[in-house]
Design a protein around this nucleic acid. Sequence first.
DNA 1: CATGAATGAGAGTTCATTCAT
DNA 2: TATGAATGAACTCTCATTCAT
Lengths: 202, 202, 202, 202
Amino acid sequence: MRRKDTEKHRRILDAAVRVFARKGFFRARISEIAREAEVADGTVYLYFKNKDDLLISIFEEKMRDFIAGVRTAMKERPDARFRLLCLIERHLAAFQADPDLAAVFQVELRRSGRFMKDYSKDALKEYLDLIGEVVEQGRREGSFRGDFPAGLARGLIFGTLDEVVSAWVLSGRRSDLTGQGEYIADLLLRGIRREDPSREGP
Amino acid sequence: MRRKDTEKHRRILDAAVRVFARKGFFRARISEIAREAEVADGTVYLYFKNKDDLLISIFEEKMRDFIAGVRTAMKERPDARFRLLCLIERHLAAFQADPDLAAVFQVELRRSGRFMKDYSKDALKEYLDLIGEVVEQGRREGSFRGDFPAGLARGLIFGTLDEVVSAWVLSGRRSDLTGQGEYIADLLLRGIRREDPSREGP
Amino acid sequence: MRRKDTEKHRRILDAAVRVFARKGFFRARISEIAREAEVADGTVYLYFKNKDDLLISIFEEKMRDFIAGVRTAMKERPDARFRLLCLIERHLAAFQADPDLAAVFQVELRRSGRFMKDYSKDALKEYLDLIGEVVEQGRREGSFRGDFPAGLARGLIFGTLDEVVSAWVLSGRRSDLTGQGEYIADLLLRGIRREDPSREGP
Amino acid sequence: MRRKDTEKHRRILDAAVRVFARKGFFRARISEIAREAEVADGTVYLYFKNKDDLLISIFEEKMRDFIAGVRTAMKERPDARFRLLCLIERHLAAFQADPDLAAVFQVELRRSGRFMKDYSKDALKEYLDLIGEVVEQGRREGSFRGDFPAGLARGLIFGTLDEVVSAWVLSGRRSDLTGQGEYIADLLLRGIRREDPSREGP
DNA sequence: CATGAATGAGAGTTCATTCAT
DNA sequence: TATGAATGAACTCTCATTCAT
């Protein structure tokens, strides 16, 4: 029964992502999400409080899974620079693999700042914290610069990734997103890595 | 009477921009737009066919004014490179000056591709044509490269500007948009200008 | 100015008959009536209190003209039987000559008994009285039977005519209405005329 | 659950008949129909597409029931002449038993020919076909004349019944409708029956 | 847990009527 | 008088949400 719950919950959430991406939040109908999830309309309300909660849950649950995935993957890479590269690649890959999710994250969730501000602070903050941890580690290890606020580096990294994905979504998701990972990593690392002292030598 | 018509039309359109930006298209209520324009609900329908038409009209009328402004300003600058710089600066300045308009253009109008595809082709095409004219001029004058499709240059210029503005809107419209004009112009010109032959000399 | 008033009043009333016949009372728009009468919307309200009043006025004014016409025509025919024939023929001819008016009288005015009951009693009563006068005259002259209530004869005559016209309207106004006058007159007269005593003689 | 569906559907339809008869189609409010059917406003739209569909459904469903009833009753009467009498009596009785239905059929449904022409052709045609079948049978049996188009007899029968009911409705539904059945049957049969050959004998 | 029929608040829109010009 | 732009009440219809089964 537990498993069944989880499975139905997941089906509804995934159906919601597809319908929100296809129709936009307001044009999406609960009945259409229910039909696509192959449950009754009322069942949606056994798993989610209301339509808004469905949107927020998409954000929080997908973020939680994503963050957990990034943490796991990063464990295998001790070096902060590689951990950052890993994070960047996973960020891009996650959206490239699920363009509907990308549409919902980059467009629907931003529509009215209310969602981000009122409800979804925690999941976003956890992601920002994860980025912050990598930056902090890089500083401790001496590979990242320490001469500017750590929050700035965190914002730079997240902001760049976010803008790249938004541009990709708004441009019709035609180009290759993951292919840009290396360039972005290179660009970002040039900005935040400590200048190689060996280059300064005589 | 003519002036009054125009003035009320303008008041409703501007109120719609504000309300659409604040609430999003779907959360916006005709009654709120009417109240903000200080007219009766029914008056909105004397000037616009329906709620959708209000959104489309914002696009078309603002675009028309913007394009007319760019054309006028460009007349004073004979050189294609300066004309391009002028266009870039005006594009950024227009949105910076009216952040609500930016929100409507970059987010609301994209929601369902239908608007752009079904209704607002003409106004957008006219802008793309204007950009195309500048490219064409630059090629005739010999200052722009001619070794790739003209449409590509046009798309590069519009796409870059559009992405920059979208990123600015989605990031909360905090940064300075016009300040980026020179960099963008520099970047774009590096891509499309003809290599200076004098630098290749002995 | 008096003439102008009258002329505009008439134009609006005639336009209303046409539009009511074409669209039905509820689908008819004041703006359409005004356009068809070539006056401004507001002008309609200088001559009629409101939309209902327009319908009632059609009934009352057309009835008044019709009754006046019947009275004039009847004066030339001293005999009650010929007067009745005259009335019948004019009743049918009036509607045949103006099918739009027929549609309004037989359908729109009946829709909700309210009009007939609340507003238009007088004009209708005057017509019933006119019929009653003819019946009364026939009785005095000895040509009509006197052995049943006068009101019954009046009702028989009006009811028959009304039913014939209604059937004609509802059937699409295709057949010839006036052509039925003689048969109707014959039918009615057989019912109400005094049996010819000469036939009873030995 | 099936029974409940059917029962609510029926309640709404019957309430609509009453309210349409009382107020006319345009003055009738969905909210009033809902209240009279003891359901919520929205429930009306679970069973009927819109207000127009409600009117059309009244026609089609009542016609279907009526036609089925006539067919059943006619089975017990093998003779075409008695079958026609049966049809006439049921036609009149159906409306006499439900004067509200009569008002809707004879007045509301005719208002704008659109309903009859665009939507309700099938149900009406089925009734005309039923009448046609009786005429055809009478001809085969030799009791009805065969020297004029069959469609004419069908039109005569339906037209007469329709006019009689319309007249009854428009005159306030005061008189006895069913009582006229025999006269109407007699009248119609005199017109379409084959002259009795025995009367012609020597 | 699951269902889906029922609910009813609330939206966009129309159009009879008014009134400043 | 005549106008027609402006009004806003009132309508139909949608759809998120509930709850008896």
